[in-house]
Structure formats: C-alpha cells, structure tokens
C-alpha cells in the first residue's frame, strides 16, 4: 500500500480526540478514502452515534447528523428515505449498535434499508470509561464486570455479523480488523464494497471492525492489539457472513 502523506479530502483538518493506539482514526481514514475514491463526498451524509465516535461530525467533511444513542439506523433511514440520492452511513460502536440500538439495527437491516453501518466492536464502552458492552467477552474484566463477565448473570456476547446475516435485507455483513497492513487493506475493500452496494441499491451493509481500546483495557497499544488477536478474533472470527454479490438481484 502506498503511504500517503496527505489526509483524504473527506476528512476535516480537526485533530482527532481519540486516545493513543485507538483504531478509530484508522477506520475514519478508510471511510474517508472510500468516499474520496467513489467521489461521493458531495452527496454523502454521515450519522454520528453516541460513544467515543460521537464527534465524527467534526471529522468527516460531508454533511453529518448527530443521532441519539442507538438511533443512528433510524436517523439514517429518515435521511435516506427523504434523499434517496444521498449516500448515507452510520458510524457506531458496540454499545450503540448492539445494546441500546439493537432494535433499530435489526429492523433497518431487515428492511434492507439502503445504508452502510460502520460498526466498531472493541468489547467495551469507551466514552463512559470502560463498562461492559454487549460484545464484552466471557470473563473479561470491565468497570461493571469487575470479576469478569459472568455469562450466567450478565448473558453472552453478541456476534452481530452472524446475527444479521440471517436477514434477507442484508446485502453485506463482513467482519474485519485493522491490526496489520493486510487486514487494513481487507477492511478498506469491505468498506468500499459496502458503499458500492448502497450506490447500486442493494440494501443494508454492515462492516464490523474488531477494534481495541487500550485506555479502558489498561494496556499499551501493542499489547491491546495482541490481546485482541488472542481473545477477540477467536470469538469474533473475521470473514464474510453475507454477500449478495456484485450482480443484479
């Protein structure tokens, strides 16, 4: 991959507020590069969610709407139905998408709402300081699972791509990560495909990015990446869970 010095046009000059080692910055950049490459910044509308990514409206150069916690798929639905020519994407974390917003997520996916969801799964609530998320692993210690997540009382983690892949309205459900050059390239390909599917009118696409949270995991960025590889990837295997393909449907 050619190393580019300049920022994609679809990113603003505002400096990211993210912690050192956080993968949000990489994913923002990938989304912005895809928007640039497809030439859709002028008709893109992003939906910022609640969580660490709440300020995405400051970082993306396209028009942005800030949604209530979990409601980004519903807000995106409103934008897309009102302006079908817009290219609409949500950017959501695991608490937003898979806990408080699971209803909106499942129904937007089920309707085949023609939008893209970028889903950051780092198994923890970042913004509020490290509480248990719907994707927190069994035994994982967080501020609200101080003895490790006990699945007997706290329930089991949710595998979102697997869950959504059973819905007819879903065009693409793919899980990626951004811990290596190879994986970053694959992640970008998935994001690009998701946007292309929307432009082609194929329905709901979700790209789940297995991510880290060094700050709230209490690890260095390098250790966090290794912990993610050792613990999260086995539970959340990378891969394509649904893909309707490039052809006409």
């Amino acid at each position: 991959m050619a190393i580019k010095g300049e920022k994609p046009h679809a990113l603003t000059d505002a400096p990211f507020h993210y912690c050192p080692g956080c993968t949000h910055g990489i994913v923002h950049r990938l989304v912005a590069e895809v928007i640039d490459e497809l030439g859709v910044e002028g008709r893109a509308v992003g939906i910022a969610s609640v969580g660490c990514s709440v300020f995405t409206y400051n970082y993306f150069n396209c028009d942005m709407v800030q949604a209530p916690h979990g409601r980004a798929p519903a807000v995106a639905t409103g934008v897309k139905r009102a302006r079908p020519d817009n290219v609409v994407f949500t950017y959501q974390g695991d608490g937003d998408l898979a806990a408080i917003g699971m209803g909106e997520t499942v129904h937007a996916a089920s309707r085949g709402e023609n939008i893209v969801a970028i889903f950051i799964n780092n198994a923890i609530y970042g913004m509020t300081g490290g509480q248990m998320a719907p994707t927190t692993l069994p035994g994982q210690v967080t501020q609200t699972s101080p003895y490790g997540r006990d699945v007997k009382t706290a329930g089991n983690p949710i595998r979102v791509c697997e869950l959504l892949s059973s819905l007819d309205g879903v065009a693409l459900a793919q899980r990626v990560t951004v811990d290596s050059v190879k994986n970053v390239r694959e992640a970008k390909r998935a994001i690009r495909k998701a946007f292309e599917y929307q432009i082609a009118g194929k329905g709901y696409s979700i790209v789940e990015v297995v991510s880290t949270c060094p700050t709230n995991w209490g690890m260095s960025p390098t250790d966090a990446l290794q912990w993610m590889r050792d613990n999260m990837i086995p539970y959340y295997p990378l891969g394509v869970y649904k893909d309707v393909g490039e052809g006409e449907q």
Binding site: A67, R71, K80, A82, E104
Partner: peptide
Amino acid sequence: LQAESEVASINMVLGAGAAG
C-alpha cells in the same frame, strides 16, 4: 414507513427533517 417503534419513528423524523 411503519417503524418498529415510536422510538424509531421519531428518529426517522429527525433524519428526514435534518435532510430538510
């Protein structure tokens, strides 16, 4: 559009209203 709940309805209204 028949939403999945009133919670979703009003947020769809927010989205469409935000789109002008």
